[in-house]
Design a protein around this nucleic acid. Structure first.
Lengths: 202, 202
DNA sequence: TCTCTTGTTATACAACCGTATAACAGGGAA
DNA sequence: TTCCCTGTTATACGGTTGTATAACAAGAGA
């Protein structure tokens, strides 16, 4: 004699709220389970929602992943901008703040890196993710070039921005990947040193 | 009336050869299809072999992926060492050769990066991959420290090695990810500049 | 030429995948 | 309080996943 299970209770949420919850669950799942372990069912379980609901808000899992990349990218850029605004208002302090924010929370975060790595790897497979990657990195580069121009007006900062981004990314990567044989403070000092080498005092 | 298909022809290969073929097929599949698209059947199809054979040489797909990481890691390290040996025998030339080899084939390669990104992302999920990552990066760091010590004996090169590795990794990443707004030559020049800044002439 | 080992294929299996569909019920509108 | 819309759940489907198993045949040894 099998008693029929009653249908689970639920509550109706505003569309924005549900979309955000699914995006956050997607990011968390990518971080904790990797690309391989991220499925519709896993994401929806994390969001505390039945699997079918995903397709009520997104055309499919690929769209959710892309939207998640866009959201996380905007979130990182916002954290970088916050660090700049919180710094002393001199051009140099703002520049240093932008560069070294990557070595402190919320950017130096193991889960964020895991999610980011998943996106990087998808870049080679998924054309939409690749396009988002280009947009996100272009915006980051433009912001950095603007800060460089405020500090040392007039010259072309394209290569300088590339050089700084590469070092910061490399340090952030090893730092957040775990077991890195250096501290955030050392990373900060290296970034400042690289900046000084690239922009010698006139 | 269905004619029974005859069983496919095959030839028996030495164990080493088959293992290598499967490892190469695994790397190629990770590069072209990503983690998501890499399955037992896909790998074996690439290797031109029936799906069951994978488990004759490896305990499962996870072991094959780990062995592939080890093989690719050794291959990269060998390419770096080759570049050093091909350089002029001065300590400085050997050091520069080691650093800039990442911006030329076979290391600056889109497929290699794709595979490498897949491994990076697995680092957070798979403990065996994480251990391999630590070993590979430790060996890379030790080699670099040795080259640094030959060039500037006596001092502690731990942080210098970290700084150089981070910049080279960051440049290699953006370069191989595609659409990078800089050339391999510019990357080489930046690496040399960073080295000069870190090791000022006495 | 024949035999025997074993590398290889073929097939089966349960579990999972993303998606489609229909039944249900939460909760605002009347 | 009642109604009705629709956000949500439940279930089903075909396809794919990793792995287990048995049948087969390649090719070396006798």
């Amino acid at each position: 004699m099998q008693a029929k299970e009653p249908r689970a209770q639920f509550h109706r949420a505003p569309a924005d709220e549900r979309r955000l919850a699914l995006i956050e669950a997607c990011a968390a799942t990518l971080a904790r389970k990797g690309v391989h372990g991220t499925s519709v069912r896993e994401i929806c379980a994390t969001a505390g929602v039945s699997p079918g609901l995903l397709r009520h808000y997104f055309s499919g899992i690929d769209e959710l992943v892309a939207d998640t990349y866009a959201a996380i990218g905007a979130q990182v850029q916002a954290a970088l901008n916050d660090a700049v605004e919180a710094a002393d208002p001199t051009p140099e302090a703002r520049l240093i703040a932008y560069l070294t924010a990557s070595f402190a929370p919320p950017i130096a975060d193991a889960d964020l890196l895991s999610t980011w790595l998943a996106f990087w790897s998808l870049t080679r497979t998924d054309a939409k993710i690749a396009r988002l990657h280009d947009e996100i990195y272009a915006e980051n580069r433009i912001t950095l070039e603007r800060l460089l121009d405020a500090h040392a007006p007039g010259s072309d900062h394209r290569l300088t921005a590339i050089a700084l981004t590469a070092l910061v990314d490399g340090l952030w990567l090893e730092l957040s990947l775990g077991n890195a044989p250096f501290t955030p403070d050392e990373a900060t000092a290296l970034a400042a040193r690289w900046l000084a080498a690239l922009l010698p005092r006139i």
